[in-house]
């Protein structure tokens, strides 16, 4: 388990981490999710020992490692921009940690081949990083981090520099890899979809604090704060409360708690239909419905309808 307790970190006047405490269970894949400047990368770097906290304690597997250099923490770290050793071949990159540990040559060679097989880079041993694509470089970096059998794998926006398609593939691949290798993994991301897709636990961070920690679904369904609610998905404001657009129910006639609205625009997005509305206070909101529901109501611009929230919303 990784435990952070009461972590504070300043950069000059900027308070990057404010009394952050979190426990990351063994074998989990936890995402630190938040906008830029929320402190998520700083927290990861503090766990890694690449930054020293001003206050607080970091423990890995029950040992206080707060004053320990990164070398002694038993971690693997993957950087957003790969941090590939450019002057070394793929083989030497992956073997780096093992060579530092002075493992026998034969053992290093077989371990490197095995890891490159796992990350799908078998046969690329002799290439240099400049001869690989971004996705391949990142997989090489993962193999390099895994080579030393870390207790903890720390990934700092690992797919942030890749294009959308590659990012999605690598995300699925990382999830499968984690299911096979089971190493405790912490992933930093600003992409809520990525966090929901890959992680089994998400810690949402904002302005140097952790807002909420939980399973992706719990966070989505029962956000503790308005920030978590709006960061994890689209929202609409109805009667001064935040709701998910797909929890808005439209009807022709008045119903309990329903608010009268005017339809401004109907957008067909394949399976779903987005209905843009304006309420009595002249505020805009969007409701998300299925094609069938929209067809049943025969929605069109200019129409007067009623809207209510299907589920209890978060107080705004």
């Amino acid at each position: 388990m990784i435990a952070a307790h009461g972590i504070h970190k300043h950069y000059g006047d900027f308070h990057a981490l404010r009394d952050v405490s979190i426990e990351i269970p063994d074998g989990s894949l936890t995402a630190l999710l938040g906008p830029s400047g929320s402190g998520k990368s700083t927290l990861l770097r503090v766990i890694a020992g690449l930054e020293a906290p001003d206050e607080g304690v970091i423990a890995i597997a029950g040992n206080d490692v707060t004053r320990l250099a990164p070398q002694g923490r038993g971690i693997g770290f993957v950087f957003q921009h790969y941090a590939a050793f450019k002057h070394m071949t793929v083989r030497d990159n992956v073997a780096f940690g093992l060579k530092i540990r002075k493992r026998p040559k034969a053992e290093i060679a077989s371990r490197v081949d095995e890891l490159l097989e796992i990350v799908g880079l078998a046969g690329y041993q002799g290439r240099y990083p400049s001869q690989l694509s971004g996705g391949q470089r990142q997989r090489m970096a993962l193999a390099r981090a895994l080579a030393v059998e870390p207790r903890v794998l720390l990934l700092d926006e690992p797919f942030g520099a890749l294009d959308a398609k590659v990012r999605e593939d690598l995300r699925k691949w990382l999830r499968r890899l984690h299911d096979e290798v089971h190493v405790t993994t912490v992933l930093v991301t600003h992409d809520q979809e990525e966090a929901m897709d890959v992680a089994d636990r998400i810690a949402v961070m904002n302005a140097g604090r952790i807002e909420q920690v939980g399973a992706p679904r719990d966070l989505y369904d029962a956000p503790a704060t308005e920030f978590v609610m709006s960061f994890l998905g689209p929202t609409a404001t109805l009667g001064g409360r935040l709701v998910r657009p797909h929890d808005l129910v439209l009807s022709r006639g008045p119903a309990e708690d329903a608010v009268p609205v005017t339809v401004e625009r109907v957008v067909h997005l394949g399976f779903e239909v987005r209905v843009e509305l304006r309420d009595g206070d002249d505020a805009q909101l969007s409701a998300q419905t299925t094609r069938a529901e929209a067809a049943a109501l025969d929605v069109e611009a200019g129409q007067s309808l009623f809207v209510r929230a299907e589920r209890p919303a978060v107080a705004a």
């Binding site: 690449l50 250099a69 971690i75 921009h81 941090a83 590939a84 050793f85 940690g97 080579a147």
Partner: peptide, 21 residues
């Protein structure tokens, strides 16, 4: 300094990082 940080997380001390990276 990312390559140097990567070397550190892989267990290299300052001297090893200097010579190898």
């Amino acid at each position: 300094d990312e390559q140097e940080q990567a070397a550190a997380t892989l267990g290299a001390n300052g001297w090893q990082t200097f010579w190898r990276i």
